[in-house]
Simulated assay, not measured.
Amino acid sequence: MFKSIFLKEYTIEYQSQVVDLILHIQQNEYNISITKEDQPDLLDIENFYQRGNGNFWVALREGIVVGTVALLDIGNGKTALRKMFVKQNYRGKTFNVSNQLLHHAIGWARDRSIEEIYLGTTPQFVAAHRFYEKNGFVSVDPRELPISFPVMKVDKKFYRYIIQ
Rank of each mutant, 00 (worst) to 15 (best):
N47W: 08
K83N: 12
S113N: 11
T79C: 14
V65E: 09
L43R: 09
N99Y: 07
I74W: 05
V58E: 07
V151E: 07
M152K: 12
A80W: 04
F149V: 03
G120S: 01
N31H: 13
L101G: 06
V151S: 04
T121V: 05
I147M: 01
K83Q: 10
I117Q: 09
F56K: 02
I106Q: 06
V86P: 08
L72W: 05
R130C: 00
H103M: 06
N76I: 08
Y49F: 15
G77M: 05
L81N: 06
R110V: 05
K93T: 14
R51Q: 14
F131S: 00
Y132R: 01
L60I: 04
F95P: 00
D73L: 12
A127E: 13
I34L: 12
G77E: 04
A109L: 04
N53D: 12
M152Y: 13
L71E: 03
S139P: 00
Y118C: 01
L102M: 11
V140P: 10
N31P: 04
L145W: 00
V58I: 15
V126Y: 08
T121M: 03
L71G: 10
V140K: 07
P146C: 10
I106P: 03
T122L: 03
G67F: 13
F149N: 04
D44H: 14
L81T: 02
I74T: 01
D73I: 13
Q124Y: 13
D111S: 14
N55L: 08
K134E: 06
V138I: 10
H104P: 06
K93Q: 12
Q124S: 11
H103I: 01
N96I: 00
S33W: 15
N76K: 15
R51W: 07
Y49A: 05
Y132M: 02
E115I: 11
T121N: 08
E46Y: 09
L43H: 05
L42Q: 13
I45G: 07
I34D: 07
E115M: 11
K87A: 14
R130E: 02
E116F: 02
H103G: 01
V86K: 05
D111R: 10
S98L: 05
